[in-house]
Every structure is written in C-alpha cells, then in structure tokens.
Amino acid sequence: MSVPDGVQESRAAWRLGIITPRRKKIFFGLLVAAGLVLPHLVYPVFLMNVLCMALFASAFNLLLGYTGLLSFGHAAFLGTAGYVTGYLLKAWGLPVELGVLAGTAVATLLGWAIGALAIRRSGIYFAMITLGFAQMIYFLAVQLPFTGGEDGLQGIPQGKALGFIPLHDPYALYYFVFAVFALGFGVIYRTIHSPFGHVLRSIRENEPRALSLGYDVARYKLVAFVISAGLAGLAGSTKALVLQFVTLTDVHWHKSGEVVLMTLLGGMGTVMGPSVGALLVVAMENYLTGFGDWVTVIIGSVFVAGVLAFRRGIVGEALHLVRNFPF
C-alpha cells in the first residue's frame, strides 16, 4: 500500500530497537496495572464500553491492518453475538460464561459463512459483499421476533460469574470484562505475531507473490476473517452483558463504519491503535451527548481533521515521532 500507515512505523520502531521485548513487557505491565486501578478513578461503565469497542476494533484491525481486507459489515458479528447472548441469558437463563461463549460461537460461524463468500472478491467488492450481508443481518434483526425489533432486547440479566460472583456489582462486572478483553486482545496479539500472522502480512504486502510462493491465499484470508468475526462477536456478547440491552444500532451499518473510523484514527496495522481510537470515539460519544445530533458531526470533523493531520493514525504518528527523535 502506498498510503503511509502505522504498519511501516511499528515495524521501523521494532527494527530500530525503540520497541524491545523488555520495554514491551513493561508497557503491557503498566497497561494491566492501569486497567486494574482505573475503575476506582473513572466511571466503570464508561471503561467497560471502551474495552468492548477496543476489542471490536482490534479484531477488525486484524483484517484491515494485518491482512489488508476492508470489511464493511463487522457490525453483523458484534450485533448478532449480542442478540444471541442476550437472548440466551434472558430466555434460557444460561450461565454468563456459556451465554458469552454461545454468542461468540455464533458470530464465528457467521464469519465463516460470510467470509467464505466475501473472500472470493477483493478491494471494494469485498467491502460491498460484507456490507450486503450485514444489511441482511440487519433485516433479520428487524424482522425476527426474539430480537425485540425496534425496541431491542432489554433487561438482560447479568447473573453470576463462575456461579458465585454477582455481576450486577459494577466492579465485579468490570473485572470480568477486563479479563475478557485481555483474553481477546491476547488472541489477537498472538495471531499477529505467529507464523500464520507472518503469512497474513505477506498477503497484505503482495497477494500475487504470496500465491506464487504456494500459499492458498483464500484459505488464510478465511481463517483471519473467522478469527476476526469471532472476536468481534466476543466484544458484542460482552457489550450486551455490560449494557443489559442490545438494539438495532448494534447491527446497523453505522457501527460498521464506526469501527473503520476508530481503527484509522488510532492507527491501522498497529497493535494499540484501534484501542486508542476506540477510547477516543467512545469518550466523544459519551461526553458530548449534550450536543445531541451534533455528536456525529463533531466526531466526523475530528475524524477528518485527525486523518488529515495524522495520516498514520495517532499511534502510527507517535511511533513516527519517536523514531525520528534524536536520542
């Protein structure tokens, strides 16, 4: 890709020894410490929302940033998993963990079905196919009785984690969500830095070349798509648990667009970029609610300004700065 993005910068940072295994450990250690302390300083529901969207965006980035696939239908996985989890917890009274797992599993299967068809095309056609399927899911969400239609699925019970930790306690719920995020983020991190991740990167860099080296590009893309969809689902299931409701906005194409925005704003192809983008967007949505409909205009303007000023995304630009800083 000719567009400068976070990929070059994070690779350069590695190469130049700005990111070292030791510094990385310290950085993630500090993040975990912050994650454990923060709910005592900041409103936990806000933090949980950020974590869910950060996981969603990180899952999306596995495709956009590391495989070079722009999905424009990722809300389908977020929302479907949310509905499934919500319904199972509410109507069947399933244990929380099972409910979340089931939602994730359904999103994974859906990812497999949609992915298998979408990866037959690339570029804008791939994006349009994913969008088309997401619109069908939206239609189903409107039509099917169990989703609650326009009203959404309300009053999802939070239950008890491991059978005895009551999740209606905001702190307990927060640590549960934090653990889910850490797990999901860990899977993404490992995938990026695995033999499989290296093949994905080569596909992103030069697809015909990867093919000519004997890699069945389509199968790698499909596996990446399925992992991404499954983790987007995990984010959706967790979000349903946090907010105790799922509505049509979770399957709406606005959500699919929002995740693109978060990822580009934070820095696609960087490990932390999507999370930073999610933090920014959720914070704006949260603290600017007083502006009513203007929120979308403000977020839109921030996005335009952000992308114009930081073409590599915030994290990409930060890495770029550090790299060119005369030590």
Binding site: S194, H198, V199, R201
Partner: peptide, 26 residues
C-alpha cells in the same frame, strides 16, 4: 514492508507446516 530476511523467510516458512498456527509464537 518486510525486511530482506523476512522476505526470504516467508518462502521458507511453508516447509515448517505451521503456517496456519495462529497460536504459536513467531
């Protein structure tokens, strides 16, 4: 955007038979 070494390694990697192993460290 891969280094010179990584370019060649991608080609060699297939022989390990772990190219779908997303759970393994690089």
């Amino acid at each position: 955007n891969l280094t010179v070494l990584e370019n060649v390694r991608v080609a060699l990697q297939r022989s390990l038979g772990t190219s779908f192993h997303f759970w393994k460290s690089d």
